[in-house]
Design a binder for these strands. Structure first.
Lengths: 215, 215
DNA sequence: GGATGTGAAGTCGTTCACAGCT
DNA sequence: AGCTGTGAACGACTTCACATCC
């Protein structure tokens, strides 16, 4: 077990492996080899073993990996053996759909607060689906609410023009993790983790590849 | 100007540069240096120049880059000087919010068809926002519609269990680009471009980084 | 003078190949 | 015998440093 810096790509793949292991477990399988895991996740077998080697030894030589154990181990590695409490800031179309996003319910992520400058707009739209009303707070309340509700991660789904301002409020609230859905490149202080998921960037990538293919 | 394979990361960054240049242009700026572009996009200045060097020479030594020209050039590189016609398959929360996604309207991406097994559910919900009703078709109609409406890219926002089936229908419809929002690892034939944007993967990354920080 | 464009160096991540366990 | 774990080879991307050109 080494302790060098772990590539971001490794973390992404672990996340993929975990989801795949979950499926295998539900199927009732007991053991999986790095070769099978690799082929089904679209990577090299040595890659799978190297990814795991950053964190320890999880397999049995000549056998493979016990699915249940490996699944648990990867969840522990990723920090998914606990609950992560999230706030969504900006309840437009995207924000509202994340509020309703079913997968979160089954996972380690829990939305515990929702914010928008217009507190009334979507209460009805959201609550009509879940049955229970959703309380939409004003962003200025973030700081006080963050402590009360122990918010770990903030999701920004505001219009791009508001993203930096919101990011500053997040910083003031002492929330250290941000998932930014806007195209705005937000600036944060050193200790804060920001990941961007602006999907037009990915679309641009698809467009580029399609276009460059036929040349 | 070389012709080696262009790293995917380069394409992602070009996409970022483009958005930043758009902002600069709106501000009325005329020229930008690789140093400024780099610092505002959070990368190294040499990186910016290398990224561009894959495709030609766009700058003027001793001066920098003309913003308007560079913006246009990057759009041409990425294939964004044309319209990309898209279908959304699976009109749940996420699919519906993408249907309403305002940014697409201002960009080179246009949603020209929407599909769901239940054709009626969301018609009202979507049309109440846009004013005009949205026609939701059955996925079995994809093949015929794809040709008529010249669909370039399909967006999968179905439940994970349906993703592979839908991907197969997309293949049959001769659509060569897929943006997959589900966690399912879909298999497609060689010529098809697939990009995944399952954001729980990114959340896992945030969780990992937060958790590994305090150790 | 000053910023680009680019070979060369450096760093990082992936794949190979085999030793080491079970 | 078979599959993991890992040093070493390889390949890819990033950064440096400077020659080049406006």
């Amino acid at each position: 077990m080494k302790f060098s810096k772990v590539p971001e790509a490794t973390i992404r793949r672990l996340s993929t492996y975990a989801r795949y292991l979950e499926v295998l477990e539900e199927k009732g399988e007991a053991v999986v080899s790095s070769a099978q895991l690799a082929s089904d996740c679209g990577v090299n077998a040595a890659q799978v073993r190297k990814d795991l080697a950053y964190f320890g030894e999880f397999g049995i030589r000549g056998v493979g990996y016990y699915i249940k154990d490996l699944y648990d181990d990867i969840k522990t590695i990723l920090g998914l053996n606990r609950e992560w409490r999230m706030a969504i800031i900006g309840i437009g179309n995207l924000g509202a759909s994340l509020l309703l996003y079913k997968d979160f319910l089954e996972q380690h992520y829990k939305i515990v607060a929702a914010f928008d400058i217009n507190p009334s707009v979507v209460v009805g739209r959201v609550s009509e689906k879940t049955g229970k009303p959703v309380e939409i707070l004003h962003p200025d309340q973030l700081k006080e609410v963050a402590k009360d509700r122990k918010i770990d991660i903030a999701i920004i789904t505001t219009p791009p023009s508001e993203a930096q301002k919101v990011a500053d409020q997040i910083a003031e609230s002492n929330i250290k993790g941000i998932l930014n859905f806007t195209p705005t490149l937000i600036k944060v202080s050193k200790g804060t983790v920001v990941k961007n998921v602006y999907f037009t960037t990915v679309l641009d990538n698809v467009a580029y590849l399609l276009q460059s293919k036929r040349r």
